[in-house]
Structures are given as structure tokens and as C-alpha cells.
Design a protein around this nucleic acid. Sequence first.
DNA 1: TATATCTCCTGCGGGC
DNA 2: TGCCCGCAGGAGATAT
Length: 308
Amino acid sequence: MPELPEVEVVRSGLERLVTGARFERVEVLHDRAARRHEGPRSDLIGRLEGHRIARVRRRGKYLWLDVADGMDEADGVEQPDCTSHPAGDALVVHLGMSGQMLVDTVDRRDDAADDRHLRIRAELSGGRVLRFVDQRTFGGWLVAPLDPAADDPTDTVPRPIAHIARDPLDPLYDVEAIVPRIRRRHSDIKRVLLDQTVVSGIGNIYADEALWRAGVHGERAADGLSGKRIRSVLDAAREVMTEALARGGTSFDSLYVNVNGESGYFERELAVYGRENLACRRCGAPIRRERFMNRSSYSCPRCQRPGR
DNA sequence: TATATCTCCTGCGGGC
DNA sequence: TGCCCGCAGGAGATAT
């Protein structure tokens, strides 16, 4: 279940392996993988083939590849300036529940399990192959124009994700501006944390972990919490995701892997998520699992009081 | 306008 | 062994 740390691990891997490469051949093997692209799959393919990957960027759980005209290093031709913000298109990728972006060399033989769930395959210059593998097909690719960011005209963001808020690891993340926004919401604090238009990158796992660290129950009303409490929740979210990123992300199974197909190790350090009936690492009380928003929420009944 | 709920999807595990 | 059902959950669509 890729959340911000897992997506950042993938982004940094892609940045290292595919920046500067050119899309030579793109195959969309499953329509659902391109369902959010406006236009037929041929349009998506046409806007990638022959174009070069200038940068790999991320906001929250979305990552995108700036695609620019121009030749790559192998062509021996001068490249355009990648440090500016190129107007043009971006390949936007969302991993959904089970998406993987795998980078291999052309001569690697795909194994059967990957073949079964291979949704998009892209041959790149330099002999690499970028494969989008997605078992549950919640993820996908789309190509869209880059627009100036609303809060920074010198920055750009793909148009379909302009509504996504900056995440806690973003240099322009402004916690002081977010706290009053959250305090105006008449909704459960966990529901607000999962709203990607308020703060992005937080999913079910890290929401539970952040709330546990801050000692706040997820069903507390956001507009009933003090600014200090909300700030402590947001700070806890940033801390836990920073720690998870340092350990390569959280993996429960083979569904989340980096670009080399390797898993992260943060699952071992989760305090509440997936630990039903196990002792709270802080007070020893058994961790409780409850249904919330049609999914599971984990909390400590002693450290996190639901309030009145 | 704000908030809540539904829907999509596939593989796994448990129960029968 | 095979079938059925619940579960996992991000985010857009739809309902209230």
C-alpha cells in the first residue's frame, strides 16, 4: 500500500535510472491502467514516444516524469536545460494499491507473475525497460500538460493533480497554514488527514501511526481539537514518514517494492497498524482494531481516548 | 458547499 | 478440492 515514503523511494529510483532517457516504444496492455488519461491510449503513447524524461518529481502519492522534446546523451546531441521548468507534458503515475514501477534491461526475462499483471511496458533509450505492474489495477498512467503551481508560479504541476496539497516532506509545506484549515473541518480528524486536498501523502497506515504518536483518537472531531493538538498530529505524521523513508518504506507483502523489486523494512517498527491485540509499545494495553471509513483503524484504547 | 458513502479491482485466506 | 465470502484501500463519482 504505497503512501508517501514508498512513492518517494520509487521516485528516487526512477530519477537515478531513467532521467535523460527517451521513450522509444510504449505499449498499454490494459485499458484500466490508462483510464484517467483524457483520450485514447494511442494519444498517451504518442505523447511519450520520442520524448525524453527531463525530471522525476512527486507530490504526495503521485509521481510524475517531465517529458521534453530533445535527444538523449546517446545521440551525442546537446540536451535542453533540464533545470528550468519546461512547459509541456508530464507522465503522471499513481501506484494505487499495488502498482510497481520496475526498471530492467531489455534482455531481462519477465517472470510469469509479473507478466500476468504487466499493464504498461515502455522501452527506453540506453537499453532499459520501464514496466508498470499492478495486480489490483487501482493505479495508472496519464499524460497531461504542466501548469504553474498555484502557490509558486516558478514551479509547475500536472493539471489533473493541481488540487493535491503539498505533502509534509515538500520544502514549501506550510504547517501553520494547514492547522487552521483542519480546525475549520467538522469531521473526524483521521478522515481529514486522509483528505489529499488538505495535506497529501498520508494514507491509512501513517494516519494511524501519526495519531498514536500524538495520542489522539482518529474519531475526534477536527474542529474540537486545539491548534496545538493538530500541530502535534501533523508533526508526528512528518516524523513517522521521514523515518519510514530512511528504511526504504513499509512492506507487508511483495506488492510494494522499489524500482529494483526490493521491499522496505519499516513494517517492523509500526506501533499500531496491523498489531491488533498486541501490546501497545507505550503503555502495554492491547491494540484495538475498529472499522472506519470501510477500512481498518488501529489505536491504543488507553493512549488515544475517543473523547465525548 | 461540505461531508459521507459507494464503487472500482484482484488475490489471498478462512470457513464450509 | 472447490466454492463463497470478507478483507485490503486510494481516490473519483455520487448522494445527502
